[in-house]
Each structure stands twice: as C-alpha cells, then as structure tokens.
Design a protein around this nucleic acid. Structure first.
Lengths: 193, 193
DNA sequence: CTTGTTAGGATACGACTGTATCCATTCGGG
DNA sequence: CCCGAATGGATACAGTCGTATCCTAACAAG
C-alpha cells in the first residue's frame, strides 16, 4: 500500500498523490486507505519512512556484496554509490526522495522525519573518516566532517543531474571516484607539516 | 504578478500555488490573473523564466562587484557563490527553484524551460575552464567538463543542505573555496607528466 | 458619435480533494 | 451460540481547483 503511494509519487509527483489514486493503484477501495492511514499526513510520513528503509537496505546489501575487505574507502564508495540512482528502481526512489525533500522545505512535520536518515548518514561517515584519519589513511589536515558534508552534497547534486538526464550514472560515478581518489590518495601527495 | 507567484512558491511550496491565491497575494481579482496568463501552465512557466532572469542578474552583479581583475578562479567563485543562498531573498529564490526542479521531474514542459539556464551555465564555465587550462592555470590532466559538472553538482547539493538548515552559508562557502583551491592550486602540486 | 480593443469585476460549472458516516461482512473468544 | 472487534464497501459533504461566461467600464481611432 505504501508501495502504491511511492509508485505514484515517483512517476507523477507527490502532488498527484491522492487517497483515491492510491486506492486505485493498490486495487483497494478508498475506505481501506482511510482505514490503515487515518490521515493523509500519516500516509505521506509512512512513504518517507519506507524510502529511508529502502535506502538503508540498499546500503547494507552493497556493503555485503563488496564484502571481504571493507577499507574506509570501500565504505565511502558503497554509501555514495548507493545514493546515486543506479537502476530503474533506485531511480524511481530517488525521484520520490526528491519530491519529499522539496515538500519538507515547506512542511516541518515532513522535515523532521526526512532529516533523520541524512543526519545519521553524515554522523556515521564522519565517525568512519575520523577513525581513518587517526589510522593514517587520510591526510591529517583534512576536516572529516567538512569532507563528509562535501561528499554527501556532491552525491546529492549528482543524483539530481542524473535524474534530469544531464549526466549518466557512469559519469556521476566517475566524478565520485575522482574525489575519493583525492581524499584517500597516497601519503606522498599530502602536505608536509 | 509573477512576483506574487514566486512569493507563494518559495514560502508555501509550488503545490500551494493556485490562481486564486496569486490573485489574493497580488491584490487583484481572479479574472486579472486569468487575463494576463491564459493557462496555469503559462503562469508556472513565467515564474520559472523569472527565476532564471534573477539568477542571471545576480551573477552579473557579483561579477561586476568583484571587478578589476576577473581571474578564472574569480569567475568560478562568483558563479558558484551566487548559486548558494546568501541572503533572505536568494534563499527564497532557491526554495522556489528547488520546487520547480522537482516539478520538472514529472512535467516535461517545465523541464524544457528549467534546463536551459543550468545547461548554459555548464557550457559557459566549461569554456572558461578550457581556456584557463590552455593558459596553464590548471593542471593539464583535468577534464574541464567533468570538473565543472562536479562543481555545479556540489553547489546544488550544498544549496539543499543550506536550505534544510543542515549547513550554514559560511560552511558551504568554505567547502566550495576548498575545492576551488584544489583545482586552481599551485603548479607545484600538479602531477608530473 | 460610433466602434473595437484592452482591462477587469462577478459568478458559475464540473471535477476533484480529504474526511466522515452508515452499513455489511468476517472471525475469534466467552 | 453470540457478540464485540476488525475490516472494508458505498456514499455523502463541504471545500478548492482550473476554466469559462457574462457584463462593465475606459479609451483610442475612424
């Protein structure tokens, strides 16, 4: 049922989401939609929560697939590579995510729900990068939180350009890899103290 | 009149934009809104065009203010610094721009109008960076179009994080400057052929 | 003075919205 | 057996939406 909501949101936009449309898409009656989601607000929030859960699942799948050795760089490549839309389904999810993001800008209730995952992601990556720095994997003059913020912003921006067909998935991945190369580059390129 | 539309779009979202709301916001009757914009579609497109014009004006203003010497790096700092929301008005415009961007994902007519400025910007900056590379201002192993795409995506992503109050304008500017430092860094840091 | 164009007020129409109400099932525990 | 709770179908309600229509003015050109 929440899937029907996200299907509509990602193909026709969040403004096309109505209780009746969801009922039709899910093949149930209007009353059933009302029954399981008391409000339209509750319905929308459930869609956002589901989106977050999917993203979480995808990150873990990719991390498991790349298993064996999870270098700091491997973690970043997995997470950032998961943010970028890489197949039809994740592309649809990214569209829905974008729709929600925009709605959250003028709807505080959605903003509260929608910011938890991005913030958790930033904290998680920052902790990883700090550890990597202490282990000597990245240059000591880098600020972990700033680097993470920049990388996440880059991934989000690239996602948008992929969605609007300005850029292919491959081109976006290349740009991400390029930045990871610079960050996790050889110690020889670090500035001497 | 288009200003009233953008005022509503940036404060309450594009889905709150209705002909009657615009009429009320502009202090005119519904008929007048219908008179000057035959369609709602035409109305929406005029808002998008106006947003593009404002952005254009801002870039030129900033470029003129930083006048005297317009180094390649100065051009990039001006353009990217203009994309980031730096005062209340540009913040509102960025919100409206985001709303339009999202709507364009599921509305081909808006996409056509909305992509002209970003594409023009990318072409312009790529030409500048190519020239700078030939002049020896950046390392020869950089791909200008890729670099520009990355920087624009970064600026867009940072804009979003500023709008959702994850990041301050200053923090975002610092990240941009950091990347520009790397790009236009001293020749000593370039890889030897 | 007449006539056509531009401008705008008032109102109506059908479609669609979220929500509420009324009613019929199904089903498990007492 | 029964009875309350869970589940869901059908329909109604009050708004709001974009759009269309009808009617005045104002004004410039003939």
């Amino acid at each position: 049922m929440t899937e029907a909501l996200l299907r509509i949101a990602s193909t026709r936009g969040l403004q096309a989401v109505s209780m009746r449309e969801i009922a039709a898409e899910a093949g149930v009656s209007l009353r059933v939609v009302q029954y399981y989601f008391t409000n339209k607000q509750a319905l929308l929030e459930s869609g956002l929560t589901e989106l977050g859960a999917r993203m979480d699942r995808r990150v873990k799948q990719r991390a498991a697939a790349t298993a064996g050795e999870l270098t700091p760089r491997g973690v970043f490549a997995a997470v950032l590579g998961t943010i970028l839309p890489f197949d039809e389904q994740s592309k649809l999810d990214s569209m829905a995510w974008t729709a929600y993001y925009t709605a959250a800008l003028t709807d505080p209730a959605l903003a509260a729900v929608g910011l938890t995952l991005p913030n958790a992601l930033e904290d998680f990556l920052t902790a990883r990068l700090t550890a990597a720095q202490q282990a000597g994997d990245i240059a000591p003059d880098r600020d972990p939180r700033t680097e993470v913020a920049g990388l996440l912003a880059l991934a989000n921006g690239l996602t948008h350009s992929v969605l609007s067909r300005q850029r292919s998935h491959e081109a976006a991945t290349k740009i991400i890899d390029y930045h990871l190369d610079r960050l996790f580059g050889p110690a020889a390129a670090w500035p001497s103290k």
